[in-house]
Design a protein around this nucleic acid. Sequence first.
DNA 1: TATTAGCACTCGACGTAATTGAGTGCTAAC
DNA 2: GTTAGCACTCAATTACGTCGAGTGCTAATA
Lengths: 339, 339
Amino acid sequence: MELDDRKLKILTAIIRNYLETGEPVGSRTISKDSDLNLSSATIRNEMSDLEEMGLIVQPHTSAGRIPSDKGYRLYVDMMLKEKEEELNNLKVELNAKSEKLDTILKEAAKVIADSTNYASMITVPQYRSKKIKFIQLTQVDYSSILCVVVLDGNIIKNMMVPCDRELPQDAILKLNLMMNTFLQGLDMQEINVSVMQKLRTEASEYSALISDILDAVAKCLEEQGVEAYTSGSTNIFKYPELNESGKATNLLYALEEKKQLTELMYKEGDKDRGIQVYIGEENPIEATKDCTLVTATYHLEDGVYGKIGILGPRRMDYEKVVGTLRNLMSELDGIFHKE
Amino acid sequence: MELDDRKLKILTAIIRNYLETGEPVGSRTISKDSDLNLSSATIRNEMSDLEEMGLIVQPHTSAGRIPSDKGYRLYVDMMLKEKEEELNNLKVELNAKSEKLDTILKEAAKVIADSTNYASMITVPQYRSKKIKFIQLTQVDYSSILCVVVLDGNIIKNMMVPCDRELPQDAILKLNLMMNTFLQGLDMQEINVSVMQKLRTEASEYSALISDILDAVAKCLEEQGVEAYTSGSTNIFKYPELNESGKATNLLYALEEKKQLTELMYKEGDKDRGIQVYIGEENPIEATKDCTLVTATYHLEDGVYGKIGILGPRRMDYEKVVGTLRNLMSELDGIFHKE
DNA sequence: TATTAGCACTCGACGTAATTGAGTGCTAAC
DNA sequence: GTTAGCACTCAATTACGTCGAGTGCTAATA
């Protein structure tokens, strides 16, 4: 069957209406609301066709129709194409002056959740293959050494390493020089046994200390249990269709146990700079099969990226969400690439 | 009226039973369950007395009784006294080897939530009056300076300060020396205008840079929006009496908007090293008036403390909760004071 | 041929009894 | 002081009737 112009108009009218009300929409409503000037009977015939095409479904006989996943998909695809250039004018309230990365991200999640009324989550970028730019050791007191590591992209990590005595000033200087000479420009994989061996030989009497420090560095750099922040998870209670018995609980659980979500968010890789929409059953996570998930990728710099996602009911205000996300992406870009 | 031994036994039997089932408990149940060997009629008479004393209430005529806040209070006080020395043997799975503080705390919250099946939250200690122990400036690349500040208690803060040119090595050394000379041992309040003035004069040509750095330091130290982590917030869905319509939503909202909770958790100060129990209406926060909140204070070192809280239904397994908290407190003590 | 009006039919939602059963208080007997 | 028995209460559950939004089909109309 052909999806002609009129059918399309009716479909979008149905979807729009359903997004607003959350109630199945009947032929009479469309007949009155839209500017098609058709009787409800005609609409009924068309709706019957649309149902046959799998774009809308009836929750039960003698109820109105609601969009199917396929119907949403059509609508979203259309909208994405249409809105390609348009930018929503939401004022993002990120006051991002040199705040820490995770503060910015938390704030971003909050902004998104507040302005869309859906639940949002954002993952912290991974620095899998970051190189060491700079290492600094300092004796802070008689029993501990502070070790600061700066990675490409000015990611700073620091840790305390215990030691058993106070080192003379020149020893510290020497160790610093050594560490930087041997480790600068290397990433984690490249710090192998031979490098460590060399360092230890060179350090002679401080070889044990060097071991401790290297351990600390390694541990600190590996410490990348893909972190994520969520916000507005209680928003899902605003949508009755998600609020049924078990569903909301499962969703909240999934949001709290961010693991699955982050996995999903990374699955797609960073190829796509664009916006991804998963509708209902398209959703790879069981708990979210009654929802729509919209994700966008932001880039801190080449190869360092994270994702931000919005989770809401199928009847999500797609236009607003996409607009908000686009806007936020450009804000984040501005913040991260301002230098 | 006198609260004799038999009444007490009946009361605890009622409470225990209600903790298990969540249903109002009737005279017949007690008559059968407990080892008192009394008929339900006798129990009824006693229950009538207990009700008169305000220790139990009837949700409605012809329903069983449930403990009132006062009844819980009696029970908890008894239990706290009884269990004073006893330590629950929960194996805390904190593998705390030199992990970062916030990782430990997050983990602690999770352990508590998992093992009790209630919601938990933990606040990150504040370092309000911490003194600067050590400051280190390093030029990382031509346009940025890394500033590391170590506070009493080995709290490390760091930040990047932009600068407009590469500084000569000896300038950096001089600045470092200056900063440490002037700022060491001071806390935030003590870094006043006169100190800053002196520093800037001393720094002569780098006076602008010094300003930037001081700003960064100040900002970084002030950055103490009492943080908190929550875990297991979805657990509250396990208790039907909290799961009613709006209640759960409000609770979740309160848990997400940690602000109120952290306020509460700090209100009490750090005088009490012990365990606090707020039952129902005793709860200072509106949203939690249907819950019991149990808090405990942990100490990182003198004057640096945080609280951990467990939020659950009134019918909380008080013994388990108190045991678990006591145990965790001692674990944390072990971790923080091992050196 | 496409559109529309009209009508019978379906089925969830809602409101109002009727029924059930756990539990109580009271009284009289033990 | 304790217990058995009985009448009473009341939330919860079930059953049932009504309502109305919405459909599909058919016949009339443009």
